[in-house]
């Protein structure tokens, strides 16, 4: 006997994501899903965002890592609520993990939740979390060909941050090539340049967040 199923394999995740999205919309809280390779500078970019927006926006952070509390402790040290999710080996966050984390946040008094996804350029892009905006970070040391090799994440985002621009003189990073590839994959994506280390570009990053996300 053949049973016609026609059911999306990710249906449970998509349902949980829709729940998160309507819950956050009801609370007027924005949520940003930050996706990038390990070491691209996700936590550093979040710290820059906190420093530059905390005077006018109430923030919280959800940290996704396979293990450890390194990142959430760094955020809490700044006096910002941080929820650590340890996926225990899983390579991405899911909408239900986010739903459980939201239970621990004071949503009535938050403008923006930044979710730092597990360091990975492939899997996180497949899983909707219920976010209102998506950003990926590419550091110049990773090379300018990453949009061609991981097109999905670059297609799915609202902004692409090129980080570690202070390393430009030491890396063969072809900025024009990178920008052109992003432009052709995702013409609507905003491209920003930043060095979390020397602070350049962080004003623009915060301005973009406050104008476009929250």
């Amino acid at each position: 006997m053949k049973i016609e199923v026609k059911k999306n394999v990710l249906q449970n995740n998509d349902l949980a994501a829709a729940r998160n999205r309507s819950r956050l919309a009801g609370k007027r809280t924005a949520m940003l899903n930050l996706m990038a390779a390990p070491g691209a500078g996700k936590t550093s970019a979040i710290i820059k965002a906190i420093e530059g927006t905390r005077d006018s926006r109430a923030l919280a952070v959800i940290e996704g890592d396979i293990t450890s509390e390194v990142d959430s402790l760094a955020i809490e040290a700044l006096g910002i609520p941080a929820i650590q999710i340890n996926t225990g080996g899983s390579c991405h966050l899911t909408a239900s993990m986010i739903g459980a984390a939201l239970d621990h946040l004071d949503l009535d008094n938050l403008d923006l939740i930044i979710v730092e996804n597990v360091g990975n350029l492939v899997c996180p892009a497949e899983f909707d979390l219920g976010e209102s905006a998506r950003v990926t970070i590419s550091s110049v040391a990773e090379g300018h060909d990453k949009p061609l090799k991981y097109p999905l994440v670059f297609r799915e985002v609202d902004a692409v941050v090129i980080n570690k621009t202070d390393l430009m003189p030491y890396c063969d990073f072809d900025l024009a090539f990178f920008r052109d590839a992003v432009e052709r994959l995702n013409p609507d994506a905003h491209v920003l340049r930043m060095s979390c280390r020397d602070g350049s570009g962080s004003e623009e990053w915060c301005r973009w967040l406050m104008n476009s996300v929250v």
């Binding site: 006997m1 053949k2 049973i3 016609e4 199923v5 026609k6 059911k7 999306n8 394999v9 990710l10 949009p147 061609l148 097109p151 590839a181 052709r184 994959l185 013409p187």
Partner: peptide, 30 residues
């Protein structure tokens, strides 16, 4: 499927209308 242009008009403005699907079509049960 990266960095495409339309083979007819050369435009790089396109949207994917198929290719992101991932579903169970059917199962065979005895």
């Amino acid at each position: 499927h990266v960095l495409l242009v339309c083979p007819d008009c050369g435009s790089a403005a396109y949207d994917f209308v198929q290719g992101k699907e991932f579903y169970i079509e059917s199962i065979e049960v005895s």
